[in-house]
Amino acid sequence: MVYYYLCSSVTLISAIVSFGFSLDAYSKAKRQGESALTNAMYAMSRSFSLVLACLIPIFFETYSYLLAVAAAMIGVQFFDGFVGLRVKNAFKTIGPFATAAGNGLLLLLLLLN
């Protein structure tokens, strides 16, 4: 039970952080033009949807659903780490990779119990 709530909490926090970065991109895109603003709005809508999806396991104990949303967020964070590598930003590289690894470990512990 403890691993379930730890995994669901880290998954939700990960989604909220991702949404925060999309909000930041949206605010910066307002100054760049219509195309950048449209792309930022798409990213923001997807990130917000992930936050909503990650709220469900907090309120309803469903292991299979948690497995799905945790795997999705692990993938998001893992690939965000590669974006960080591309832009040569240590914070945007290490943070997502560490989050993906931590969430993956919690998911593995949940599956083993």
Score class of each variant (00 low, 15 high):
16 I>K: 07
9 S>H: 03
10 V>W: 05
25 A>P: 08
16 I>L: 12
21 F>S: 14
26 Y>R: 12
19 F>R: 00
34 E>T: 10
32 Q>M: 14
21 F>L: 14
27 S>M: 12
8 S>Q: 08
38 T>S: 13
32 Q>L: 15
27 S>L: 15
12 L>M: 00
16 I>Q: 09
2 V>A: 10
23 L>V: 10
16 I>R: 05
15 A>T: 00
29 A>V: 01
2 V>D: 15
22 S>L: 00
26 Y>A: 10
10 V>S: 00
12 L>S: 01
39 N>A: 14
29 A>G: 03
6 L>Y: 13
30 K>R: 13
40 A>Q: 10
38 T>Y: 05
17 V>Q: 07
11 T>I: 01
11 T>W: 01
34 E>V: 06
36 A>M: 07
3 Y>K: 13
29 A>D: 04
10 V>E: 09
23 L>N: 12
22 S>Q: 11
36 A>T: 13
41 M>F: 07
5 Y>C: 02
11 T>M: 05
11 T>Q: 00
29 A>Y: 02
41 M>T: 13
3 Y>W: 11
17 V>A: 14
33 G>D: 03
36 A>V: 06
21 F>K: 13
11 T>Y: 01
24 D>Q: 13
34 E>Q: 09
31 R>F: 10
14 S>E: 04
4 Y>D: 03
23 L>M: 07
6 L>V: 07
32 Q>H: 11
4 Y>K: 03
37 L>D: 08
24 D>G: 10
7 C>E: 07
32 Q>N: 14
42 Y>S: 02
4 Y>N: 05
15 A>M: 03
3 Y>N: 14
33 G>C: 05
7 C>F: 01
20 G>K: 02
4 Y>V: 00
27 S>W: 09
4 Y>G: 01
21 F>T: 13
4 Y>E: 03
21 F>W: 14
18 S>N: 15
40 A>C: 11
22 S>H: 12
5 Y>S: 05
5 Y>L: 07
16 I>P: 08
23 L>E: 04
32 Q>V: 08
6 L>E: 14
23 L>W: 02
25 A>I: 02
35 S>Q: 12
26 Y>K: 09
11 T>K: 02
28 K>N: 13
30 K>V: 03
33 G>P: 08
35 S>K: 15
19 F>L: 11
23 L>K: 04
12 L>H: 07
41 M>E: 09
42 Y>L: 07
2 V>E: 15
19 F>S: 03
